[in-house]
Design a protein around this nucleic acid. Structure first.
Length: 288
DNA sequence: CAAGAGACCTGCTAGC
DNA sequence: TGCTAGCAGGTCTCTT
């Protein structure tokens, strides 16, 4: 489940069902799932055996489970990854990639991923953005719900970029956690078209955009996240309901919730962008 | 160095 | 019915 609210739903599930437990065994069923674990599958498995799982953490769309000692299990769900907590004997999911069993004999943790863009690995910890994070994600910026997220610095870096505002929102080294859905929703709330050059945004407008992103992601989290289908679920396999509250994403030809104009879909960065042609007019030219 | 295009996957759906 | 093109919520890597 890709964007910040959906990943946070999973983090909370891991915190509740996995933290504090001792790993008894692990199994890698698809090598691609651990492709970023350089030492390979055998090392991955042996490194987990006997370890105690700590409190689940998240930055943006990355999740990690600290291990006793100083390393952690790091996971990214990619486009279709799921972390599920299921009874050890239950039938393997079609796209089951990694399985972790516990010494208490209770429910096991399964990484299921249809499209295999997600991955898990065991890694050392480092430091970035005001707190300890797994070494492979030191380049990922703080997400807007972290205490260390600096609104002023974000505004400055955003305006300095030679790019368009939606691209910048999706740039995980600038602000993490925002993906295609919530970028579109935040832009709609702020009345901005995604191709607006970042250099033309005023500080108050950037503050408004940031507030919009926080609001829409908070609202989504309180509904359990956004799910259009069974691919995006919590650790117990349940979907969220925020899709009902989306203002633009996936609503082509439906009326804008502010002005009633039909929502349009445009191609941008090889993906879909949805916007209201009246509330979010396309800039006439760079500099406007 | 920064910005943008392409690559990496499977499965579903719409349209012919 | 069956085929194909297009699309899906992400990030990394390579080129310019």
């Amino acid at each position: 489940m890709p964007e910040l609210p959906e990943v946070e739903v999973v983090r909370r599930g891991l915190e509740r069902w996995v933290s504090g437990r001792v790993v008894a065994h692990a199994e890698v069923l698809h090598p691609r799932a651990i492709r970023r674990h350089v030492p390979g599958a055998e090392e991955f498995v042996s490194r987990l055996r006997g370890r105690t799982i700590g409190s689940a953490e998240r930055r943006g769309k990355y999740l990690w489970l600290p291990l006793d000692g100083s390393d952690a299990i790091l996971a990214h769900l990619g486009m279709s990854g799921q972390l599920l907590v299921v009874e050890p004997g239950s039938a393997p999911e079609k796209h089951l990639r990694v399985r972790i069993g516990f010494a208490d004999g209770g429910p096991e943790l399964r990484f299921v991923d249809q499209r295999t863009f997600g991955h898990v690995l065991v890694t050392a910890m480092a430091h970035s953005g005001g707190r300890p994070v797994p070494e492979p994600i030191v380049h990922i910026a703080a997400d807007p719900f972290e205490d260390h997220f600096d609104d002023e610095k974000f505004a400055g870096r955003l305006r300095a970029k030679q790019t368009e505002v939606k691209r910048a929102l999706l740039d995980q080294s600038l602000i993490s956690g925002v993906g295609n859905i919530y970028a579109d929703e935040a832009l709609w709330r702020a009345g901005l078209h995604g191709v607006r050059p970042t250099g033309t945004l005023t500080k108050p407008k950037i503050a408004e955009l940031l507030a919009a992103a926080r609001q829409v992601m908070s609202a989504a989290l309180s509904e359990g996240g956004t799910s259009f289908d069974s691919l995006y679920v919590n650790v117990n396999g349940e979907s969220g309901y925020f899709d009902r509250s989306l203002a633009v994403y996936g609503r082509r030809d439906e009326p804008c919730r502010k002005c009633g104009a039909p929502i349009i879909r445009e191609s941008f960065m090889n993906r879909s962008s949805y916007s209201c042609p009246r509330c979010q007019p396309r800039p006439k030219r760079a500099g406007l």
